[in-house]
Write a protein that binds this DNA or RNA. Sequence first.
DNA 1: AACAAAGTTCGACGTCTCTCGTACTACAAT
DNA 2: ATTGTAGTACGAGAGACGTCGAACTTTGTT
Lengths: 104, 104
Amino acid sequence: MATATVSGLHHPEVDELRLEGVLHALSDPIRLTMVRALAARVEPCACGSIDVPVSKSTRTHHWRVLRENGLIRQVERGTTKLTELRRDDLDARFPGLLDVVLRG
Amino acid sequence: MATATVSGLHHPEVDELRLEGVLHALSDPIRLTMVRALAARVEPCACGSIDVPVSKSTRTHHWRVLRENGLIRQVERGTTKLTELRRDDLDARFPGLLDVVLRG
DNA sequence: AACAAAGTTCGACGTCTCTCGTACTACAAT
DNA sequence: ATTGTAGTACGAGAGACGTCGAACTTTGTT
């Protein structure tokens, strides 16, 4: 039962978040579903536990887009990846945006 | 000196606006520039008067994307096209979104 | 009538995106 | 040790996207 480790996954800093990138990440229906599902959780959750109608590898692709554009944070733990919304960061950088999307 | 005529241009109704579409329309740097420039005007303006570093035909393409996704309204007048942001519609459907984008 | 100005249409091109399956790695459980 | 589970890597295909130039349409001006 190892503790969550800081992995080599690339996450942009708060001040590196680009609006175009964030909007692009959110403009895909599958990713929108993922973000909303994530928002409905309190704790970080295994990214595989959110089911969307695409294959496993496509899911990996979408999680990467979300991560690289600063929407989510992921840490590896064991065989799974704990995933959470970067609520605070997003609210700090683009106040109101997440609210709109989650209300959507 | 013809009055502005209601043209055959397709504009989605307020309740037809899709969040994915709006976000996609806004996720391009050129279009973001266009929207912000439009927001800085009070009156509808000729779409050609907003200059962006792309060719005339590419500009046409971007205006169409913005129009078809409900970001702008265009009416033909003479040889030009009066273009304006659909502020009210966007605020009604996705409150706060435009603010975020314009604050950027 | 002739010309200029504002946009559109069309075809083309290269790139990015979404999708998949297969093969692979890493950890966990029996 | 073997098997199972969670996810990644890679290569490939189809389609969407952004870009351009050239030709065209429509309207306004001289």
